[in-house]
Simulated scan of single mutants.
Amino acid sequence: MKKSILTLTVITFITATILLSCKPKTNEVKDAQEKVAVARDNVQDAKDTLAMAKQSATEEEWRAFKNSGDSIVRINDRRIAALKLKIKNTGNNIDSAYQKNLYVMEVRNENLKVKMDAYKNGASNDWQSFKREFKHDTDEIGQALKDLTVDNKK
């Protein structure tokens, strides 16, 4: 009998210990919820800061970039016009590949104009990406126009 009472007492003690240890502590739960809320706020603040950094250039920077881009496009227009005039004045039959390349450069330059005019300096646009792509495109057209006048046939 003593053995069964002792076994019953041990089982009751173990069961009580398990039940009490599984019960969540309200202070710890509240602290964890507050930490999660603070972490969410920090993440949202970081996202907002990143969006503001990516979002737009200052008006002064945008104007300077637009003026620079417009002048590059105008220079390319003049070079294309000069090459067209050179073709007309020589009177020679320039091969069609040369004329086709000149036409492609003209279209790409027009596309740059449209791209510059269509860009809205706002929250939904990535300023750095636009600037990098525009510079790459203008450099590419400038190099192609230079290469167009080089005579590689020997």
Results as ranks from 00 to 15, higher is better:
Lys3Asn: 15
Lys3Gly: 10
Lys3Pro: 08
Ser4Cys: 03
Ser4Leu: 10
Ile5Met: 04
Leu6Pro: 01
Thr9Leu: 13
Thr9Ser: 10
Phe13Ser: 14
Phe13Leu: 15
Ile14Thr: 08
Ser21Tyr: 00
Ser21Cys: 01
Ser21Thr: 05
Ser21Met: 02
Lys25Trp: 04
Lys25Tyr: 09
Thr26Pro: 07
Asn27Lys: 10
Val29Ile: 11
Val29Tyr: 01
Val29Ser: 04
Val29Ala: 05
Lys30Ile: 11
Asp31Val: 09
Asp31Asn: 14
Ala32Val: 08
Glu34Val: 15
Lys35Glu: 04
Lys35Gln: 05
Val38Cys: 01
Arg40Met: 07
Arg40Glu: 15
Asn42Ser: 09
Asp45Met: 12
Asp45Leu: 12
Ala46Tyr: 09
Lys47Phe: 11
Lys47Glu: 15
Lys47Asn: 13
Asp48Glu: 14
Thr49Val: 12
Leu50Gly: 11
Ala51Phe: 11
Ala51Val: 09
Met52Gly: 11
Met52Leu: 14
Gln55Cys: 12
Thr58Phe: 01
Thr58Glu: 01
Glu59Ala: 11
Glu59His: 05
Glu61Asn: 12
Glu61Tyr: 05
Trp62Glu: 07
Ala64Tyr: 08
Asn67Gln: 13
Asn67Cys: 05
Asn67Met: 13
Ser68Thr: 10
Asp70His: 06
Asp70Gln: 12
Ser71Pro: 04
Ile72Tyr: 13
Val73His: 00
Arg74Ile: 04
Arg78Lys: 15
Arg78Thr: 11
Arg79His: 06
Arg79Tyr: 12
Leu83Tyr: 04
Leu83Phe: 07
Leu83Trp: 03
Leu83Glu: 05
Leu83Lys: 08
Leu83Pro: 03
Lys84Tyr: 02
Lys84Cys: 05
Lys86Arg: 06
Gly91Gln: 03
Ile94Gly: 00
Ala97Lys: 08
Tyr98Leu: 07
Tyr98Gly: 04
Gln99Glu: 07
Lys100Asp: 07
Asn101Asp: 06
Tyr103Ser: 13
Val104Pro: 04
Met105Cys: 09
Met105Tyr: 05
Glu106Asp: 09
Val107Asn: 13
Arg108Pro: 06
Arg108Met: 13
Asn109Leu: 00
Asn111Glu: 13
Asn111Leu: 12
Leu112Ser: 07
Lys113Trp: 09
Lys113Gln: 10
Val114Trp: 06
Lys115Asp: 14
Met116Val: 10
Ser124Pro: 02
Asn125Met: 09
Gln128Ile: 03
Phe130Asn: 02
Arg132Gln: 10
Glu133Lys: 08
Phe134Thr: 08
Lys135Cys: 08
Lys135Glu: 14
His136Leu: 15
Asp137Tyr: 09
Thr138Glu: 13
Asp139Tyr: 12
Gly142Glu: 08
Ala144Phe: 01
Leu145Pro: 01
Thr149Leu: 11
Thr149Asn: 10
Val150Ile: 13
Asp151Met: 02
